[in-house]
Design a protein around this nucleic acid. Sequence first.
DNA 1: CCCCCCCC
Length: 515
Amino acid sequence: MPGDSAITLRSLQVDQKSWTVRLRVLRPGSEIACGTNLLSRIRKMIMVDEEGTRIGVVIFKDEIQQFNHIFENHKSYAISNGQVQRSNQDYFNAHPLMELVLKKYTTVKEIGETINVDSTIVYNFMKFPDIDSTIHNRKAIDVCGIVIKVKDKKKTHTARGATKYVREITLMDNECHSVIVSLWEDMATNEGGELQEIAAENPVISLAQVTARKYQGELQLQTTMASIMQIYPTNDEVQHLQAWLAQINDPLKIQALAMKERIKKANKVTLHEIIHNRFLLSEDEYYFFKATVNKVENKSYIWYDSCTKCNSAISKNGDTMACRKCNIEPSYRLLLNVTQENERALITIFEEAAMLYVGCPVNEYLMSVEKEENDSKYFRGLSLQTGMEFQFLIALNKKATIVNGQLNVVAEAIEKIQLENQKPAKHVDKIVQRKKLNTLQDEDEILMGTSKAKNSNTTTKRRQTKKNINCDENVYISSDDDETIQQLFKKIKKKSDSTYGSKDVQFIQVKKEKS
DNA sequence: CCCCCCCC
C-alpha cells in the first residue's frame, strides 16, 4: 500500500475491508487479563490522526505478540487493513462509532515524521466544582490540573472478583480545589509510572474522557478504557495553570493550599461532638475541628523505617534513605496528642500533612537528624509547635476509634492557624508556658523510659531548664537546654539501639508506665 | 473475542 493512499478516520467506514490510516499513539496500553475467569487477554491502545480524531485500537490475545514491540508511545504509524467494527455503545469509547481491531494480516509501518497533536486535540475542560458525580459517572468529561501527589500502583480486587491495578494521583486547579484521580490498569502502569518519576516537579496534565463519582462525600475521578492523558500539553488552559504554579514555586506551599481548601469544604465539628455524639455524624463525610497540639508522642521516631512494599529495613543509600531492593523511601507517621476544651485526641498524620507539620520531605528530615537530633531545626521545630492550634481534617470511618474518652483518628489534612498577633498576650503567655513545662515533663518521662526518674534532683533541674524557655513564637530553646535535652536523647537512643527494630514497642511501654 | 472498578 503506498503511503499517499492513506485516508483520515473521518472517511473510514465500519466494516471497510481495505484501508490505510496514519495514526499516532496517544495511550500505548498494556496487555491485561480480562473476560470470564480472566482467561482472555487484550491490549487496547488509543490513537489519533492528523485531524485530531481519536480511536480505540484493539489487539486480542493471539495477535498481542505480533505487535508487541512495534507500537511505542508518541510515535506514528501507517496501519493498513484490519477489522473496523462498530463500538459497543454500552461502554466509553475513544471514537463514538467504531474501533479498529488489528489482525494477523494487518501491516504496520512507522512514519518517520510523527503526527503533531499540539493543536489538534481539543478538550472541553470542566472546573472541579462544576463536576457532578451523578451526571458525570455516565458522561465522560475532560479535566486539567497540577499533579500534587502520585501514589504507588497497587493491586486490587473488584467486587466481581477481577484483579486490577490502580494508582491514585491528586490534581489541583488554580483555585486550590483538588481531586483524586484513579488511574486504572495500563494507565496506572504507563502514564502513572511516568508521572511518578517527575512527581517532585508538580507536572501539569490534561485528561480526556474520565468519569466522576463520590467517595466519603468527596469527588473522585476515574479513567476509563477511552481516557487519555497528556503530560505538559500545549493548550492555553494548561499553560495558564503552569504559569500560576510557577508563581507559587514551593511544593510545600502547594500542599498546604490544597489541604486548606479541603478543610474549607468539610463539616465543622467539635471534639466534644465527635466523642460524645458520634452517632449523629456520618461515616461518609469529612469533618474538621480545631485543636491544640500538646506534643508529638513519637518525636524521636516519626517515620517508618521498614519498606512499605517488602518490609525490609530502610537504610542509607547514597545521599538518601531508601529500601535497597524496591528503592522506596521511608514515610512519615506522626502521632499528635491534641486537646480541644477538655476533650482529647490522638491524631496520626502521614504524607503531606506530616510534611507540612515537620516542614520538609521525609528524606531531608532523616538527613538532618542523622548525626544529632538537636542539630536539626526540623526536630527542634517539633517541640516549638506545641501549644499551637491547628485544624484537622478527618474521615469518621471505622478506623476512627474512641478509647477511654479519647478519639484516635488519622487526619488527612492539617492547617496551621495563623495568629493575628504573633506575640500572645501576657496571661496567655503564662498558660502556654505552663503547657510547655508539662510537655517537657512528659517528654522527660519518655526520654528516661520510666517515671521512676522523678527524683527531687531531676525535678529541680527541670525547673531550672524551664525558666529559660520563652514562649515568644520566635524563641529558640537555649543552648543549655539543648545540652540537657541532647543528653537525654542520647540515653534513649542507646536504649532503643539495644532493642533494635522495636522502637514502637518501646513507645508503647513508655505510654503504659505513664497511665 | 474487551470494559465501570479499589480505599494508607
